[in-house]
């Protein structure tokens, strides 16, 4: 199969020394195996995620994503824009949609962009990495590269919010999307059936500002994974990953639970199943080590 090329928007949390740098590591490893070439958008900026609305009004926020799309059009002409972060994907796609629908906003956005010497045509598709895997490659192709099936690991596929709503993945339902379970199966592991917190909210950015309220939500997400017999949790979202992994000690202290369940990305699973080392899979980025994956990677 010929190399597939995309214009890549990595986002703030994936930068070196940032909270999901291990996600990017595993994505790069996974893409190398799958012959996917990611051309990073030069000089991309923050999308303002879903929490920029206090200081940033509608137009300044749209301008942020518009700048990224315009830079992509200029440097990676004709290529679909792909994001790995749920919030980056959502904000960019929302911008594209809103500017398509509203000519006045589009004109004003271009006026703002001209201050940075840019123009927006708004013609390329905005996609999540998960869409590329499912739609451009397909489960069969993803399965072909497995050299170390993840046998004997039971995994709760935690899809979360923003990879699922409001856009979601074509052909999947908002209430019970199946793609993450299919990824898990394709890699040779066993998905938790009827994981009832699959699309529940972890609190998102409010894990910082409303820690107690958010940790109550996170507790339920982890509890449901244990109830389903999971050894670990996997997610497509950097905020979900961080929130569900790093607060387990705090939750244990408050609720008397004994949580210690690793939370990784789908790309971590795939890198390990594709025979890559723990380091290449980003396993050294786990605060709660994913022992079962480490064992397979070390074999």
């Amino acid at each position: 199969m010929a190399t597939k090329e995309y214009s890549f928007y990595p986002g703030c949390s994936s930068q070196e020394g940032a909270s999901s740098s291990n996600y990017l590591k595993s994505v790069n490893t996974m893409c190398e195996v799958l012959d996917i070439k990611l051309n990073t958008i030069p000089d991309w900026n923050c999308c303002s995620a879903s929490i920029g609305y206090c200081g940033g009004g509608e137009l300044p926020r749209l301008a942020l994503s518009a700048r990224n799309i315009a830079l992509s059009e200029q440097h990676n002409a004709g290529q679909d824009i792909v994001a790995t972060c749920a919030a980056c994907w959502l904000a960019t796609k929302e911008t594209q949609e809103r500017l398509e629908m509203d000519g006045d906003l589009m004109a004003e956005t271009n006026q703002a962009l001209s201050e940075a010497g840019l123009t927006l045509k708004n013609e390329n598709k905005i996609r999540h990495m998960v869409e590329v895997l499912i739609e451009d490659l397909g489960y069969d192709e993803l399965g072909k590269h497995v050299t170390k099936p993840l046998e004997g690991i039971k995994i709760a596929g935690y899809v979360g919010c923003q990879t699922n709503r409001p856009f979601g993945i074509e052909g999947e339902s908002f209430e019970n999307p199946k793609y993450l379970d299919k990824f898990i199966e394709t890699m040779g592991a066993e998905p938790v059936e009827k994981y009832d917190k699959k699309v529940s909210c972890c609190g998102g950015a409010l894990a910082f500002s409303e820690p107690e309220k958010s940790q109550a939500l996170i507790k339920d997400i982890i509890e449901a994974a244990y109830d389903g017999g999971a050894d670990m949790i996997v997610t497509p979202c950097p905020v979900c990953q961080m929130n569900v992994e790093v607060y387990q000690d705090k939750i244990n202290a408050k609720y008397g639970t004994k949580f210690s369940i690793p939370v990784t990305y789908y790309s971590t699973l795939m890198s390990v199943a594709y025979g890559k080392s723990g380091k290449e899979a980003g396993l050294d980025g786990q605060i709660i080590p994913a022992k079962k994956l480490e064992d397979i990677a070390g074999k």
Binding site: G57, L59, A63, R67, E108, T109, A112, E115
Partner: peptide, 11 residues
């Protein structure tokens, strides 16, 4: 920064 400033002014 010029782009953000312009967007804020327009809004």
């Amino acid at each position: 920064q010029a782009m953000i400033k312009k967007a804020q002014e327009l809004e």
